[in-house]
Amino acid sequence: MSDRAIALIRHDVRLQYRYGIYAAYAVIVALYVTVLLLLGGALPPWVPALIIFTDPAAVGFFFLGALMMLEKAEGVRTALAASPVSAVDYLAGKMFTLVGLSLTSCLLLVPFIHQVANPALLLVTVALTAVQYVGIGVPIALRFRTVNGYLIGSAGFLTPLIAPGFLALLEPFPLWLAVIPAVSQLRLLLMATGVVSSTTAEVTIPMIVATLAAVGAVALAHHALRGELGK
């Protein structure tokens, strides 16, 4: 990782702290923990997986957009366009902080989940999901000018991406549905939290789809940022 990318990571951490993103996220995680503590036994077994699935999507999508709107208001990206900072450096800063935030949340929630069958699968899936939604969020955020505009307008982009994920709850599960990234991601989380059993193919195919979705989203974000930053 370049020195410029490390500097941007530090900048993102300071910006997120200054604008209360960490405080807001702590409240969200505390709410999740409260729900799992008080209602865990009465909730359907797939609820923890669903909470974990929607969490990195929200972090990667909404928090990214808010950060980019704040940077735009402060003229940060205009300054970056005239600097030696590359699209890779800029994207690395956003990925590192926001994916890290999603993984931290997942680790905090794990003790309150009644059964975690595969912690490694859980963390890998959360990381891939977060990467995908950060990547998708970049070109969408570039379309908006204000935080409020993004938070309202971007929901129209996010909903069709997440909604098909509920198909992962079907039993028996048609494996061909795993071609939909949201379905693969939630299905992997259901496996990781011990809600459903799986064969080798039922793990491998969703993992391949989730990985390809993350890689494609990063490529999309990089392309959009090269147009924005001019390099």
Rank of each mutant, 00 (worst) to 15 (best):
A82H: 13
Y32C: 11
L37A: 13
A49P: 00
L31M: 13
Y25A: 06
H11A: 14
A73M: 08
P84E: 04
K72F: 00
G41W: 03
T34K: 02
A57G: 14
V33T: 14
T78C: 02
A73D: 14
L91T: 05
L67M: 12
Y90V: 01
A87C: 01
P84L: 03
A81C: 00
I28K: 15
F62H: 08
I21K: 09
A42C: 00
V88C: 00
A23E: 11
G20D: 09
L50T: 09
I9L: 09
Y17L: 13
H11Q: 12
I51Y: 05
D55S: 12
H11E: 13
G20Q: 08
L43Y: 07
I28M: 12
A87R: 00
L43V: 04
V35N: 05
V88K: 10
S83N: 09
L50F: 15
G75K: 09
L39T: 07
I52C: 06
E74T: 09
Y32D: 15
L38G: 06
R18W: 04
A42K: 11
R77V: 15
A30K: 07
E71K: 10
R77G: 03
I21N: 05
F61N: 02
V29C: 05
A30L: 13
R10G: 15
A49D: 02
Y19C: 00
I28Q: 12
V76R: 06
D89Y: 07
E71F: 01
V47F: 12
V29M: 03
L67P: 00
A82N: 05
A57K: 02
S83F: 07
V13I: 15
L38P: 01
A30N: 02
L31E: 03
V76P: 03
L15Y: 04
L67K: 10
L15S: 15
V88D: 10
L91N: 04
T78S: 14
Q16C: 12
G40P: 01
I21E: 13
T78Q: 15
L15V: 11
